[in-house]
Computed example of a mutant assay.
Amino acid sequence: MEIPPFPRPGSLEEALALQEALAGKVVVAGSLEGVRRIAALDAAHKRGRPLVAVAVLYDLEEGLLHVGKGIVPEKALFPYVPGFLSFREAPAYLLALKALPEAPEALLVDGQGIAHPRGLGIAGHLGVHLDLPSVGVAKNPLFGRPEGPLPWEKGSAVRLLSPEGRPLGYAYRSRAGVKPLYVSPGHRVGLEEALEFVKRLPTRFRLPEPMRLAHLEAGEALRALD
């Protein structure tokens, strides 16, 4: 797939200005109805080693189709700063996506969408950069608070709210009794539509299957570097 050049800010101030500009381009509207082929994205990194990103091309009817990998040397990584993860991981994700034999219809990203202090988590950043619908599914919260207690039943969800009360996404229980996931739209997807899409994904464990496969592939690729 065609990948536009990714801007590499030279300082945190430049990254902040770029992040705020891109956040203004995020569209929190749209449906994933009819979307069949997605790319699930996950990354793995260990200090002193390159960062490895994986894009799993997954067909919702056929299952796993292809795995693309992207590797960026540690010395080339943007510094780790909370809230600026996309500048660190996105270059490797773009390499992984470029390695796929075809472009996905949407992105499912291990990380935040608009549930981010400036409204541009890595799912939104990649979605805007590639002009693709994207959804963030994070294992841990970053920004926002649940509207109320989350029931323990499978499929339960409560809204995540900003300090001002603006909806950002959902805390979502993918399996009964497991820790919640945090689902937020990245780009070109509505709030409810993002949650409903994640609910429709095959899920045998805590992570939806495409994301579980990406997580496993990323870990295996990192171990292979050793």
Rank of each mutant, 00 (worst) to 15 (best):
G70A: 12
R47C: 00
K75N: 08
G155N: 13
F143T: 10
G121Q: 13
A43Q: 15
A171I: 02
A17M: 11
A55S: 09
E33M: 04
L12E: 13
E33H: 07
E220L: 15
A214Q: 02
A106I: 02
V158K: 14
A53T: 06
I114L: 12
L130N: 02
D110Y: 08
K154N: 09
M1G: 12
H187Y: 14
I38Q: 02
R159Y: 05
S184G: 11
A17I: 05
L222V: 02
R88D: 03
G148E: 13
V35N: 04
K199S: 02
L60H: 08
R36I: 03
R49T: 00
K139M: 10
L97N: 00
L18F: 13
Q19N: 07
V198S: 08
E217Y: 07
K98W: 00
G24E: 14
R166H: 14
G169Y: 12
R173Y: 01
L126G: 02
L160V: 04
A39W: 00
A92I: 04
H45S: 05
R200Q: 07
H45C: 04
K179F: 08
V198I: 11
V28M: 06
E220M: 15
G186C: 12
R206I: 06
L41W: 02
M211G: 13
R8V: 01
L130C: 03
F78Q: 13
A29E: 15
H215C: 14
E196F: 01
P151S: 07
V158M: 14
R175Q: 05
G186K: 10
A17Y: 08
E61L: 09
A29W: 06
D42E: 10
P82I: 08
S134W: 02
L201D: 08
V178Y: 03
V56Q: 09
